[in-house]
Design a protein around this nucleic acid. Structure first.
Lengths: 340, 340
DNA sequence: CCGGAGTACAAAACCGGTTCACCGCAGTAC
DNA sequence: GTACTGCGGTGAACCGGTTTTGTACTCCGG
C-alpha cells in the first residue's frame, strides 16, 4: 500500500501533474469539473502532500522550533512549559505547521540547535523562551535572518518581535496586596538573575517597595529547586528582623517555604505570608492554599505562535502584550499577627 | 547570505554534485585528496544538508513523533512528560533525527495526527504514550506500517515494540512496605481506568493484597486532579473503617490528601500513611515528605527513543524492560498509631 | 599491443511537489 | 477574415540532495 503521489492522481484523472497541483491548491488553471474530479480521486486515494517535497519546492519547512534550555529535573516541576506548548499547539492546530521541540542542557547547545535548524532548513521560524540578559540567541537569529518571536521581554529583545506579559504590573499588585495587609518587610526569592523576567520582576519589586516606602525589601536568588527555596527561607527567617512576607518565583520554592515555616513553628499566614508566581493546580491544592499570580499561559503560547506564523508569512514585526496577570489571593497571605 | 548547497560546493571544488555527495557521506567514489578538499570547502561555507532534500531523496523524514493526549492543565502538573521528553532528546542528541511534538486534546485527533504524519511523510516513526485498553492507535500504526514504540505495556501492545516498567513489582514493594508497617486496610486512588498502566497497577495492588491476606484493599479512580484526590480521600476517610494507608497515582492527589487529612485532624503518618507514584521534587519538598515510587523517567524515554531509532533502521522489534522502580520511604509513611 | 579490471570522476535520473512558459482552442472585437 | 484575449490545459524546469549509469584514464597480465 504505497503512499499515493500527485502522479498517481494525475494518471487516474488522465491529466498532467501540473493540473493536479493547481486543482489541489485551489489555484486557477483547471476547470471546475476537472478540479472536482481531481479532488475526488485525491480523497479516495487518501493523498496528502509530502512535506519534504513541498518544503523543497516552496522553500518552506512547515515547522517552527522551540528550544527549552533547563535541566530535566526543573522542567518537570515547572507547569509553565507544558502549558506554553499546549498553547503553541492550539495556534498550530489544523494548519500545515508542526512543532519541533528540543530540550537542551546548555545555552551553547541551544544556539547550535538554532544554527543547525536554520542550515538544514528544518524550521521556518523559532520561539525563544527564558530570555537572558545580553542573550546571544538574539544576535544569532538576527544574523541568520531566522524569523523569531521572543516569549518574554519587552526589554532586551533587540529588534525581535515578542509577546510579553506585564510582570511589572503584576509585581506591583502583589506588593500592594501585601502592604495592604500591613506587611512592611517583604522579601522576594527569585529565580536566576540571568533571566530577563527575573530582573524585570526584581526591578518592579524594588520600585513598588520604594513607592510604598517599605524599608526591608530584599531579593535572594535561587535555582527554582525546593532545596534552595528552603535554604533561603531559613536564612531569611533567621534574621534579627525577619520578613513577614515572601514572594517566590515558582510554586515549588513556595512549598519548601511552607515546610520550613512549619519546622520553625512559624504560622502561615499569621506570622508569615507567602505568594507564588504563576498559579498552578498545586497552589490551589496545598493547605494553606497559596496566594499566587496567575496568567493565561496557554493563551501566551498561542499568541506567540500566531505571531510567529504571521512573521513567517511576511507579516510585520510586533511587540504584543499578552493577557494580563491576575492576583489570586488564597490562604497563604493575611495580616501579620505577631502573637500567632 | 544564501544557504550553500552542494552545487555551490561542487562549483568551488571544480567537481560534480555526485562527487560532493560521495565525499560528504564518506562513501567510495572520490580520491582522498579530493574528499579532503570538498570537506574543507563545505566546512568553510558552513554547509548542512537540507533536511527536505534529503528526506525527499532517501525517503526518510529525519524525525520521530510524539503525541501527548492530556488536558493542558494536567500536563503541566505531571513531571513525567517533560522528563520523558528530555530522555527522548538525549537519545536523539547529536543524531540527524528531530522530535515532532503534538499536544492533543482528544484521542480521535491523536489518531488523525498519526495518519497525517504518515501521509505527509513527516516522521519515520512514533512513540505511543498513555496506552489505553483496546487502544485504537495500536491498530492504526500497524495498519499504516508506521514504526512505533509503545511507552508502557508490556500487555495490550499487540505486536508493537515497547519499553515497559515493572509496575507490578513496584506495587508489590509498596504494599509490602505498608504491610510491614502494620497496615491492613489500604486503598489506592488511581488514575483513569482506561489507561493500561492504571489497570496493571490495580491488578498488582489486588494481587499483593490477596497474597498478604489484606482484607480492605480497594481502588478508586480519579482524573489526577487535586480536587478529585481530595474528594476521594475525604470519602475514604469518612468510612466506618477507614483505610490507614493510601496509595496515589500521582503527587498532586497525594498533596490534596495531605491537606484533607490535616483538615480532618488526621495525623500523617501516625494515623494515615501516604504513598505517591512517580517521585518528584515536590515529594521531597513537602512536609511531611512523601514516600514515593521512583523510576528513571529520563532513561525510560531515552530507551524508547533508541529502540524506535533502531526499528526505523530496520532493526527487530523488541520488548524492553526499563530500569526498575525504587521505593523511596519518607516521612509520609509509618506505623499506624491509633492514639496519635 | 591489446583486452580487462579498477579508479575517479561526470552526467543524468530520481524523489514529489510547485511554477513558469507555452499552446491549442473558443469567443470576441474590428 | 483576422487578430486579440482568456481559458484550460501540457510539458518542462526547478528545489537539493542521493544513486545509478557512463566514461576517460591508468595499470596490469598475457
Amino acid at each position: 500500500m504505497r503512499r499515493p503521489t500527485i502522479v498517481d492522481i494525475a494518471r487516474a484523472a488522465g491529466v498532467s501533474k501540473g493540473a493536479v497541483s493547481y486543482a489541489l491548491n485551489g489555484r486557477p488553471g483547471v476547470s471546475e469539473p476537472t478540479r472536482r474530479r481531481i479532488l475526488e480521486i485525491a480523497a479516495e486515494l487518501g493523498w496528502a502532500p509530502s512535506s519534504a517535497a513541498r518544503a523543497l519546492s516552496d522553500g518552506r519547512a512547515g515547522a517552527i522550533g522551540l528550544v527549552v534550555d533547563r535541566p530535566a529535573q526543573v522542567l518537570g516541576s515547572e507547569p509553565f512549559f507544558m502549558r506554553l506548548i499546549a498553547g503553541i499547539q492550539s495556534a498550530l492546530a489544523g494548519g500545515p505547521t508542526a512543532l519541533l521541540l528540543q530540550v537542551s542542557d546548555d545555552a551553547t547547545a541551544e544556539i547550535a540547535t538554532y544554527r543547525r535548524w536554520y542550515a538544514e532548513r528544518r524550521v521556518d521560524g523559532v520561539l525563544l523562551v527564558d530570555l537572558r540578559v545580553a542573550d546571544p540567541r538574539i544576535t544569532t537569529v538576527a544574523e541568520l535572518g531566522l524569523p523569531a518571536v521572543v516569549i518574554g521581554g519587552p526589554d532586551d529583545t533587540g529588534a525581535l518581535s515578542c509577546v510579553w506579559s506585564d510582570d511589572d504590573a503584576a509585581m506591583r499588585a502583589v506588593v500592594d496586596h501585601l502592604a495592604g495587609l500591613g506587611h512592611r518587610r517583604i522579601a522576594r526569592v527569585a529565580g536566576p538573575a540571568e533571566f530577563v523576567h527575573t530582573r524585570a520582576r526584581s526591578a518592579a519589586f524594588h520600585g513598588a517597595a520604594a513607592d510604598l516606602g517599605l524599608d526591608g525589601a530584599q531579593v535572594a536568588h535561587a535555582d527554582y529547586s525546593g532545596e534552595e527555596g528552603a535554604r533561603l527561607t531559613r536564612e531569611l527567617l533567621a534574621a534579627p528582623e525577619p520578613p513577614t512576607a515572601l514572594i517566590f518565583d515558582n510554586d515549588l520554592m513556595a512549598v519548601a517555604a511552607l515546610g520550613v515555616a512549619q519546622d520553625m513553628g512559624v504560622q502561615v499566614p499569621d506570622r508569615l505570608s507567602i505568594v507564588a508566581w504563576d498559579d498552578s493546580p498545586l497552589c490551589r491544592t496545598l493547605r494553606p492554599a497559596l496566594t499566587a499570580v496567575r496568567r493565561d499561559v496557554v493563551d501566551y503560547g498561542e499568541q506567540a505562535a500566531r505571531l510567529l506564523l504571521r512573521l513567517v508569512d511576511g507579516g510585520p514585526p510586533a511587540r504584543l502584550a499578552a493577557s494580563a496577570f491576575e492576583l489570586v489571593p488564597r490562604g497563604s497571605t493575611g495580616p501579620f499577627h505577631p502573637a500567632g
